[in-house]
Design a binder for these strands. Structure first.
Lengths: 210, 210
DNA sequence: GTCATAATTGACTATTTCGTCATACATGAG
DNA sequence: CTCATGTATGACGAAATAGTCAATTATGAC
């Protein structure tokens, strides 16, 4: 009889299995963020994870399946970073500042994830595809930004402006960091982000309330 | 005797050769911008160019050589777009506005190139590598931005601030467009860029003169 | 301990992509 | 036209990568 009363006591097999899966995901994240999803091979991943190749295929169909899983998870993390904050912001500026700050913290805590998201977004069928076909997690990410900001605009929500804001914020943050990690020292990034954030927030706020 | 007096009259062979090379470069740019450099195969390129596979290797060592050539050329174009403008800007705001405008025009005229640059930059050995090892064309690009702006700051040039500005501009522009081409219709991009540019310029100007 | 079941392995085959080269075609000078 | 030289081709063997599976090891119920 499989355990029913023993609430969350996992068998050793289950634990082993979970551990292996996590090992693979961690290794894949490292490899993907270092050389990119397309350049990475399954061998790269299993070698990094110190596991046999067959094990990989026990858990994932191919490298794109694990990449998708990672992107979904990481986006989820970013979104929850956005929605979980203690004090309710009082006004638009505070909201925007929080928004950028949340990205910054996410970047600090999860650099590999950040890079993977960034890669993935660019890779997503660019061009011609309509926004509707856009990959789901990014869609949700944009929606989350909209949700955060909309309560603080004075006039009734202007959906077009909100979309533009989301683009500007996401673009600025991703763009800034992607350049910053190439051109700046880690400590310099923090200071630069600090001062630019304030400036950027003010202009965005002006843009929304105009 | 090869032609000496006949200034730029190329032989038919030379013309054919040049045409082939251009065909390959055009095809490679299309393929790279669509599926990325890493995912692209030499067959993808030659098929797109409607040429035999052997022909590719007659002109390029491998796909990375042609990719590098393309990135260099396109960066050159972007830089010349930045430095070639008729009227000298009167002040910092005008300079910044011009800067963003130049990017916008470049993006409009050369979308595939824009995407390739963007991809390439991200792909460049991120992490740990020092800025000195950063790929040359991007280095030059950042320098060009600095050169444009520095004459218009009131106080003697603050090199750190200039670097931050360059990061912010490049980040904003690349980030904005990369998001915009996913989430917006082409005509919407223009309007959004228009209104955001003014706002962004003002805040950057404030950042520099503070 | 025994045994059935689950997890792992890496050698193996299949598939994809690379890069070459003998052959064919185009050019242009004589 | 003829021939030497430059250009283009795609079939082919080499190399890299994908994906499978029989054998091996770990787990856990008894």
């Amino acid at each position: 009889m499989t355990n029913e009363s023993t609430q969350n006591t996992k068998t050793r097999s289950q634990k082993r299995s979970t551990k292996t899966r996590l090992q693979l995901e961690k290794a894949a994240l490292d490899v993907f963020s270092e050389i990119g999803v397309d350049a990475a091979t399954v061998d790269d991943i299993t070698t990094r994870a110190d596991l046999g190749k067959g094990t990989f295929y026990r858990y994932f169909k191919d490298k794109y399946e694990i990449a998708t899983k990672l992107v979904d998870d990481i986006t989820e993390q970013l979104i929850s970073q956005l929605s979980s904050y203690d004090k309710t912001p009082k006004n638009l500026c505070q909201t925007l500042e929080y928004l950028l700050d949340a990205h910054y913290r996410f970047y600090l805590n999860n650099r590999e994830g950040f890079i993977l998201l960034f890669q993935g977004r660019v890779m997503a069928k660019l061009e011609r595809e309509s926004a509707a076909q856009m990959e789901e997690p990014y869609q949700k990410y944009l929606e989350e930004i909209a949700k955060l900001v909309s309560p603080h605009t004075s006039s009734p929500v202007d959906s077009v402006k909100i979309r533009r804001l989301a683009c500007a914020v996401a673009g600025f943050v991703f763009g800034f960091f992607s350049f910053a990690i190439i051109a700046m020292e880690p400590n310099e990034i923090e200071v630069s982000m600090e001062s630019l954030r304030r400036v950027f927030v003010q202009s965005l706020s002006g843009f929304l309330e105009r």
